[in-house]
Amino acid sequence: MGAIISLEHLRKTFRVADRPSGRLAGLRGLVAREMRTVTAVDDVSVDIHPGEIVGYLGPNGAGKSTTIKIMTGILVPTSGGVRVNGRVPWRERRAHVAGIGAVFGQRNTLWWDLPVQDSFDLLRHIYAIPAAATRRI
């Protein structure tokens, strides 16, 4: 029996603006904004067959969510091919999502408009964690 999910040389890149953090960050971000390309998913190929239970592991920023979002039809890949249930997710979005389920976690815990570091600093204050107990990333 053929694969029910198949990814072929999947790639997704994002153009992101570097936002400085720290003192007067907002102001500096307005004046000088540098764009760079980040590769979130780099040449992923996988075949999953009916009945298989699969875990997809990797550290933060490895591109797990991005891959799943492409498989659910939320994102359009930069290149490569995807077939789920015989459909290309982002081309036949409605038919596709009618047959799948998806749960995403970790929403609303970060300040979307701030650099991650600033979010962590804020959360550290909220949870009263002493600075000595944390490590800058």
Binding site: K69, T72, G73, I74, R93, R94, A95, H96, V97, A98, A102, F104, R107, W112, D113
Partner: peptide
């Protein structure tokens, strides 16, 4: 778009 909450809408099988 900024918060990425369009996801919930994209995951529902109804015309966007």
């Amino acid at each position: 778009v900024r918060r990425g909450t369009l996801d919930q809408i994209l995951l529902r099988p109804v015309n966007l």
